[in-house]
Protein backbone atom coordinates (compact mmCIF):
# COMPACT_ATOMS: atom_id res chain seq x y z
CA UNK A 1 0.00 0.00 0.00
CA UNK A 2 2.77 2.45 0.92
CA UNK A 3 4.60 2.53 -2.43
CA UNK A 4 1.27 2.66 -4.24
CA UNK A 5 0.25 5.69 -2.21
CA UNK A 6 3.59 7.36 -2.91
CA UNK A 7 3.11 6.74 -6.63
CA UNK A 8 -0.40 8.16 -6.47
CA UNK A 9 0.87 11.37 -4.85
CA UNK A 10 3.73 11.59 -7.29
CA UNK A 11 1.22 11.46 -10.16
CA UNK A 12 -0.88 14.17 -8.54
CA UNK A 13 2.20 16.34 -8.11
CA UNK A 14 3.23 16.19 -11.78
CA UNK A 15 0.90 18.96 -13.04
CA UNK A 16 2.03 21.22 -10.19
CA UNK A 17 5.68 20.62 -11.06
CA UNK A 18 5.01 21.43 -14.72
CA UNK A 19 3.17 24.63 -13.81
CA UNK A 20 5.94 25.81 -11.50
CA UNK A 21 8.47 25.03 -14.22
CA UNK A 22 6.36 27.11 -16.61
CA UNK A 23 6.47 30.02 -14.21
CA UNK A 24 10.24 29.67 -13.80
CA UNK A 25 10.59 29.78 -17.58
CA UNK A 26 8.80 33.12 -17.65
CA UNK A 27 5.12 32.27 -18.02
CA UNK A 28 2.74 34.83 -16.53
CA UNK A 29 1.31 33.83 -13.16
CA UNK A 30 -1.99 35.09 -14.57
CA UNK A 31 -1.94 32.32 -17.17
CA UNK A 32 -1.55 29.67 -14.49
CA UNK A 33 -4.65 30.72 -12.58
CA UNK A 34 -7.01 28.93 -14.89
CA UNK A 35 -5.21 25.55 -14.96
CA UNK A 36 -4.73 25.40 -11.17
CA UNK A 37 -8.33 26.41 -10.47
CA UNK A 38 -9.75 23.98 -12.96
CA UNK A 39 -7.63 21.08 -11.74
CA UNK A 40 -8.60 21.80 -8.15
CA UNK A 41 -12.26 21.82 -9.15
CA UNK A 42 -11.93 18.57 -11.11
CA UNK A 43 -10.23 16.84 -8.21
CA UNK A 44 -13.09 18.03 -6.04
CA UNK A 45 -15.58 16.49 -8.46
CA UNK A 46 -13.69 13.20 -8.39
CA UNK A 47 -13.64 13.30 -4.58
CA UNK A 48 -17.36 14.07 -4.36
CA UNK A 49 -18.57 11.34 -6.72
CA UNK A 50 -17.89 7.99 -4.98
CA UNK A 51 -20.04 8.80 -1.92
CA UNK A 52 -23.40 8.98 -3.72
CA UNK A 53 -22.35 6.36 -6.30
CA UNK A 54 -21.61 3.72 -3.68
CA UNK A 55 -25.09 4.22 -2.32
CA UNK A 56 -26.56 3.76 -5.80
CA UNK A 57 -24.53 0.82 -7.09
CA UNK A 58 -23.62 -0.85 -3.81
CA UNK A 59 -20.13 -1.31 -2.43
CA UNK A 60 -18.35 -3.11 -5.25
CA UNK A 61 -14.56 -3.40 -5.41
CA UNK A 62 -14.05 -0.47 -7.73
CA UNK A 63 -16.17 1.98 -5.75
CA UNK A 64 -14.69 0.80 -2.47
CA UNK A 65 -11.22 1.49 -3.82
CA UNK A 66 -12.36 4.91 -4.98
CA UNK A 67 -13.79 5.75 -1.56
CA UNK A 68 -10.54 4.60 0.03
CA UNK A 69 -8.55 7.28 -1.85
CA UNK A 70 -11.23 9.95 -1.57
CA UNK A 71 -9.49 11.82 1.22
CA UNK A 72 -6.27 11.97 -0.80
CA UNK A 73 -8.17 13.40 -3.76
CA UNK A 74 -9.70 16.03 -1.50
CA UNK A 75 -6.35 17.03 -0.05
CA UNK A 76 -4.94 17.24 -3.59
CA UNK A 77 -7.84 19.50 -4.58
CA UNK A 78 -6.92 21.71 -1.63
CA UNK A 79 -3.27 21.64 -2.73
CA UNK A 80 -4.13 22.96 -6.17
CA UNK A 81 -6.44 25.52 -4.58
CA UNK A 82 -3.48 26.69 -2.49
CA UNK A 83 -1.25 26.84 -5.58
CA UNK A 84 -4.00 28.85 -7.30
CA UNK A 85 -3.78 31.35 -4.43
CA UNK A 86 0.01 31.51 -4.65
CA UNK A 87 -0.19 32.31 -8.37
CA UNK A 88 -2.87 34.90 -7.63
CA UNK A 89 -0.62 36.56 -5.06
CA UNK A 90 2.30 36.57 -7.53
CA UNK A 91 0.06 38.02 -10.24
CA UNK A 92 -1.25 40.80 -8.01
CA UNK A 93 2.20 41.49 -6.62
CA UNK A 94 1.09 43.31 -3.47
CA UNK A 95 -1.33 42.99 -0.58
CA UNK A 96 -3.21 46.28 -1.07
CA UNK A 97 -4.80 45.43 -4.45
CA UNK A 98 -5.75 41.97 -3.16
CA UNK A 99 -7.58 43.55 -0.24
CA UNK A 100 -9.08 46.18 -2.53
CA UNK A 101 -10.81 43.62 -4.71
CA UNK A 102 -11.74 41.19 -1.94
CA UNK A 103 -15.36 42.35 -1.82
CA UNK A 104 -16.06 41.75 -5.52
CA UNK A 105 -18.49 38.84 -5.96
CA UNK A 106 -16.13 36.93 -8.24
CA UNK A 107 -13.36 37.19 -5.65
CA UNK A 108 -14.96 36.62 -2.24
CA UNK A 109 -16.64 33.48 -3.55
CA UNK A 110 -13.17 32.12 -4.28
CA UNK A 111 -11.81 33.03 -0.85
CA UNK A 112 -14.79 31.57 0.99
CA UNK A 113 -14.65 28.39 -1.06
CA UNK A 114 -10.98 28.09 -0.19
CA UNK A 115 -11.77 28.56 3.51
CA UNK A 116 -14.19 25.60 3.40
CA UNK A 117 -11.53 23.50 1.67
CA UNK A 118 -8.93 24.55 4.21
CA UNK A 119 -11.17 23.46 7.09
CA UNK A 120 -11.77 20.07 5.47
CA UNK A 121 -8.11 19.56 4.59
CA UNK A 122 -6.92 20.60 8.06
CA UNK A 123 -8.81 17.71 9.66
CA UNK A 124 -7.98 15.14 7.02
CA UNK A 125 -5.74 13.01 9.24
CA UNK A 126 -6.85 9.86 11.04
CA UNK A 127 -5.92 11.47 14.31
CA UNK A 128 -8.18 14.47 13.67
CA UNK A 129 -11.00 12.12 12.69
CA UNK A 130 -10.67 10.23 15.96
CA UNK A 131 -10.41 13.40 18.01
CA UNK A 132 -13.48 15.05 16.50
CA UNK A 133 -15.73 12.02 16.41
CA UNK A 134 -17.26 10.63 13.23
CA UNK A 135 -20.23 12.94 13.19
CA UNK A 136 -18.55 16.28 13.69
CA UNK A 137 -15.77 15.25 11.33
CA UNK A 138 -18.29 14.43 8.63
CA UNK A 139 -20.11 17.74 9.13
CA UNK A 140 -16.91 19.69 8.47
CA UNK A 141 -16.07 17.51 5.46
CA UNK A 142 -19.48 18.26 4.00
CA UNK A 143 -18.31 21.87 3.77
CA UNK A 144 -16.58 20.71 0.59
CA UNK A 145 -19.98 20.88 -1.09
CA UNK A 146 -20.13 24.56 -0.20
CA UNK A 147 -16.58 24.96 -1.49
CA UNK A 148 -17.58 23.25 -4.72
CA UNK A 149 -20.59 25.48 -5.35
CA UNK A 150 -18.61 28.61 -4.42
CA UNK A 151 -15.80 27.61 -6.78
CA UNK A 152 -18.31 27.16 -9.61
CA UNK A 153 -19.75 30.61 -8.92
CA UNK A 154 -16.25 32.11 -8.68
CA UNK A 155 -15.42 30.76 -12.14
CA UNK A 156 -18.70 31.71 -13.78
CA UNK A 157 -18.54 35.26 -12.40
CA UNK A 158 -14.91 35.78 -13.41
CA UNK A 159 -15.35 34.54 -16.95
CA UNK A 160 -18.87 35.91 -17.34
CA UNK A 161 -19.96 32.52 -18.65
CA UNK A 162 -21.94 29.71 -17.01
CA UNK A 163 -21.16 26.87 -19.43
CA UNK A 164 -17.92 25.52 -17.94
CA UNK A 165 -19.28 25.67 -14.38
CA UNK A 166 -22.42 23.80 -15.38
CA UNK A 167 -20.39 21.10 -17.12
CA UNK A 168 -18.43 20.53 -13.91
CA UNK A 169 -21.59 20.59 -11.83
CA UNK A 170 -23.31 18.00 -14.02
CA UNK A 171 -21.62 14.77 -12.84
CA UNK A 172 -22.09 15.64 -9.17
CA UNK A 173 -25.71 16.68 -9.72
CA UNK A 174 -26.36 13.46 -11.65
CA UNK A 175 -24.84 11.29 -8.91
CA UNK A 176 -27.02 13.04 -6.34
CA UNK A 177 -30.13 12.69 -8.48
CA UNK A 178 -29.44 8.94 -8.71
CA UNK A 179 -28.90 8.78 -4.96
CA UNK A 180 -32.24 10.50 -4.33
CA UNK A 181 -33.99 8.22 -6.81
CA UNK A 182 -32.60 5.11 -5.12
CA UNK A 183 -33.52 6.39 -1.65
CA UNK A 184 -37.01 7.21 -2.86
CA UNK A 185 -37.52 3.75 -4.35
CA UNK A 186 -36.26 2.09 -1.20
CA UNK A 187 -38.71 4.07 0.88
CA UNK A 188 -41.57 3.15 -1.46
CA UNK A 189 -40.68 -0.54 -1.25
CA UNK A 190 -40.54 -0.40 2.51
CA UNK A 191 -43.98 1.17 2.59
CA UNK A 192 -45.35 -1.57 0.33
CA UNK A 193 -43.96 -4.27 2.61
CA UNK A 194 -45.53 -2.62 5.64
Amino acid sequence: MRPRKALFWLALAVPAALMIADLARGALAMDLLHPTGELSLRLMVVALLPGPLIEVFGPNRFLRGWVAIRRNLGVAAFGYGALHLVFYAIDMGALAPIIAEFALPAIWTGWLGFAFMLAAAAISTNRAMAALGRRRWKRIQQGVYAAFILALLHWALLDRAWGPSLIHLAPVALAWALRFAVQFRRRLNRRKVA
Binding site: A94, P97, A100, L104, A106, I107, L157, L158, R160
Partner: peptide
Protein backbone atom coordinates in the same frame (compact mmCIF):
# COMPACT_ATOMS: atom_id res chain seq x y z
CA UNK B 1 -2.20 52.96 -11.39
CA UNK B 2 -4.00 52.03 -8.20
CA UNK B 3 -3.18 48.34 -8.75
CA UNK B 4 -6.61 47.25 -9.95
CA UNK B 5 -6.48 44.15 -12.14
CA UNK B 6 -8.55 44.82 -15.25
CA UNK B 7 -9.49 43.31 -18.59
CA UNK B 8 -10.21 45.88 -21.29
CA UNK B 9 -11.70 45.26 -24.72
CA UNK B 10 -10.74 47.46 -27.66
CA UNK B 11 -12.10 47.69 -31.19
CA UNK B 12 -9.41 46.30 -33.54
CA UNK B 13 -10.13 48.86 -36.29
CA UNK B 14 -10.80 52.07 -34.37
CA UNK B 15 -8.81 51.05 -31.26
CA UNK B 16 -11.57 52.53 -29.20
CA UNK B 17 -11.96 51.36 -25.62
CA UNK B 18 -15.31 49.54 -25.57
CA UNK B 19 -15.71 47.81 -22.25
CA UNK B 20 -13.61 47.18 -19.13
CA UNK B 21 -14.09 44.44 -16.56
CA UNK B 22 -12.62 44.13 -13.12
CA UNK B 23 -12.74 40.47 -12.05
CA UNK B 24 -15.90 39.90 -14.08
CA UNK B 25 -17.62 43.10 -12.92
Amino acid sequence: ESGMAIEAFFHPVTLEKLVVFRRGS
